[in-house]
Amino acid sequence: MITAITDSFTQDHHRCDHLLAATEASVGSGDWSAIDAAATALVDAMNRHFALEEDVVFPALARVFRVAENPIEIMCSEHAQMRQLFEELGESVAMCDKTAVLGLLETLHFLVQQHNYKEEGVLYPMADGALPEQAAEMAALLNQV
């Protein structure tokens, strides 16, 4: 059984979890340039992850497996919710508003966790099953900078 997509994309989720935790840790320091750098690294990593899913994995999956269309739509709408939070996070960092930054990171964290849970449990295994020939290639894309 192929698990290349599940394994590599799950690992990338963990990488983003670490970046979110690092951003929270940086808030404690009160150094706003460090907080800004940590938040930017987090948002960049997540945007890259979304782009690979939305431009590569999900379209390929939807082409061969029609049942996936509805779950894909739900995942993409949650990506949009997260992008909204990125925007608010950026504004709060620019305004040096510690309370808002922590509240937004908490909200983002919870949204991400329940989202990842569904991707890792449903979408990725579906993609591995439906795209056995392309799975390794798609997984490798995550490692390219």
Binding site: Q81, T99, G103, E106, T107, F110
Partner: peptide
């Protein structure tokens, strides 16, 4: 989280993107 998530869902359903849903710590600081 449930408060935020349901409001967010309602925002998408009603397409009211002009309003901003408050973050989780607004509900219980």
């Amino acid at each position: 989280f449930l408060s935020w998530f349901h409001l967010q869902h309602r925002q998408v359903a009603t397409r009211r993107f002009d309003v901003r849903v408050p973050h989780m710590h607004t509900f219980i600081p």
